[in-house]
Nucleic acid binder design. Structure first.
Lengths: 340, 340
DNA sequence: TCGCATTTTGCATACGCTTGCAAAAATGCT
DNA sequence: AGCATTTTTGCAAGCGTATGCAAAATGCGA
């Protein structure tokens, strides 16, 4: 616990140059003669000097920190995304400052305050909704916001999602082709764009064939709610013979109920399809047919867009929609000769 | 994108007081008359002023940021811990700055540099090993380090773990009481203290009864490695009838192999016991008997100790060891009349 | 060698805030 | 009311760095 901070001034003295010379050596764009660079580098190494990012940030107005707002991490999709996001930002010299949010708006408002306090250069929200009011606050503060895996109507907002409507529709086509008679939907939270879009696409896909959903229930993206929904839908004579569940996290819950509470076989009695393709979906215990969201690409887009706005001031908000693909596995009957 | 920063100076002018008065109103310990407080608060609200945490940090030397170093998030234990940690710190006015690390030492060294650049007030490492050299660097910089769920011999290091040795031993007793004949261990990474301690405790527990492990293999805390280990151990005539797996993440992999590749029944043919008790362990698809690590308590301890060192300078390193408890579920035969 | 264009360098200031110090205001006491 | 004490206030210095500006150093061609 020595606590001895070594500053650019210390390095300057030891190298026999001015403090500004030291600063220039550590500032990418600046000019310094080879001789000075050498002297400064040497002195800096000997003293173990590294520039103070915060002091630098005070002047440049850039902290190289990105605020990430997340509501929960129990859905495996988010830790995976977080890991990739954090790594990608790290490679480009940024770091993630975490903010856990409840879903209450008031809570989020509080968090936006804190984000601004820390002078983050940009904000990524995941599994969280921003109100227009909050977006405005960030806007006037000049901080770009990007919504990851969630959309919002406000055209000033940037977002990166998969094409949830198309994904839902494709699931409908797939289940119809499989010859299912009673097709139900345990939907994602209808307060979220993903939940609504997937449901709408799914219903549209059924409608394309002149069909309707046997039942639609909101599973709230919660394991418990999804289990309740499954019980409600399946514990009766006219139970569905196929169900599209709004994300994998809920789909696992539904499968657990079907198999272990109701003794149904998958896909014998019921076909189950999810959304996300989290790693667990590929494990044989679930072997879940699901729509893959290409997380790597989503993260790459997120980083590119956000940093473009930060670094080049490229200010146009973007709504980026990446296609998803249906992963065929064992939890749903595969139609004869089915090709995507 | 207005970018209009409002500073304490702006507030001061509007409230008709000095800049220092504004500062005092926003500094917990400082003194200001009720009248001034009122004027300043009013002006601040009207302008939407909030103190700049970074500028404050430059003076106080405290950034209210805790660096978190993690190697991977695919083992569910870590996202859960991260969520709790982040929330707990948030409640006490701190925030988590994320650093993803590969396991290479050189990589970690790089990360320590960056941690120091950001002037974090403290560091938590999880699923990552620090070398003594790195610890020293943080020490001289006056930044307390706390290892979460990983120990190290260096007495200067603080750590929070469960009693892995005791946990391993209890599993041994449990499996012995269950009358198993050939008890194997797919161990956690032997480069980590948790991996070693659990294995050692387990072997000690067997030895207590004059028994030996039927086989011990290192599963590296990796899904793929654990699957290979399972194949190697079980795809032969004298296969084990019980296996203790070094953590839940690997245990799921092992169960998948046993059931879906080798067609074995659990616990009919083989009893499986894990370590951690991640949420997934309680889902009926796995229903895994496992040693619970009380994450909430671990996190609470972590936060308490770390902030104590930061805020009160309480400098004594601590090795905190919390007891775990065996959660009885369906993946392992339960001995008649077994009580913990 | 000298003059000119170009780099490199140091000085000084600023970023937004906290805090020691001394002056000013408020308070309590006789 | 008058004085001693306490509280509140403003001033100014500083935290560690970046950067515009002018002065010094360098390079180049003739």
């Amino acid at each position: 616990m020595a606590g001895e901070k070594v500053t650019s001034m210390d390095v300057a003295r030891r190298a026999g140059v001015s403090q500004s010379a030291v600063s220039r050596v550590f500032t990418p764009g600046a000019s310094a003669s080879p001789k000075t660079v050498a002297k400064v580098r040497k002195a800096a190494d000997e003293l173990g000097y590294r520039p103070n990012v915060l002091a630098r940030g005070l002047i440049t107005g850039k902290t190289r920190m990105i605020g990430l707002v997340v509501a929960y991490l129990d859905n495996q999709f988010y830790p995976v995304a977080l890991e990739l996001l954090s790594k990608a930002l790290q490679e480009r010299g940024y770091h993630v400052l975490m903010f856990m949010a409840g879903n209450a708006t008031e809570d989020i408002s509080h968090i936006v305050d804190e984000l601004l306090d820390y002078q983050v250069d940009g904000i990524v929200t995941a599994s969280v909704a921003m109100t227009n009011d909050l977006t405005a606050r960030c806007d006037t503060a000049g901080i770009p916001v990007l919504m990851f895996n969630r959309g919002q109507d406000d055209p000033r907002l940037s977002e990166v999602t998969t094409d949830n409507f198309a994904g839902g529709r494709q699931v409908a086509r797939f289940l119809l082709a499989g010859g299912h008679a009673r097709i139900a939907h345990i939907a994602g939270w209808q307060g979220s764009s993903t939940g609504r879009d997937r449901a709408a696409g799914f219903l549209a896909g059924l409608a394309d064939a002149g069909r309707e959903a046997h039942a639609v229930v909101d599973g709230m993206y919660h394991r418990d709610a999804a289990m309740d929904a499954a019980r409600q839908l399946f514990d009766r004579p006219d139970r569905p013979d196929a169900v599209f569940v709004g994300n994998d996290h809920m789909a696992f819950a539904v499968m657990d109920v079907l198999r272990h509470e109701l003794g149904l076989s998958i896909p014998g009695d019921v076909s189950v399809v999810g959304y996300d393709d989290v790693p667990l979906a590929a494990w044989p215990a679930y072997d879940l047919t699901t729509v893959r969201q290409p997380v790597r690409r989503m993260v790459a887009e997120t980083v590119d867009r956000l940093l473009a706005r930060i670094e080049t001031g490229d200010t146009a908000p973007a709504k980026i929609r990446i296609p998803g693909t249906l992963m065929l596995r064992g939890s749903a009957r595969i139609p004869q000769g089915w090709t995507q």
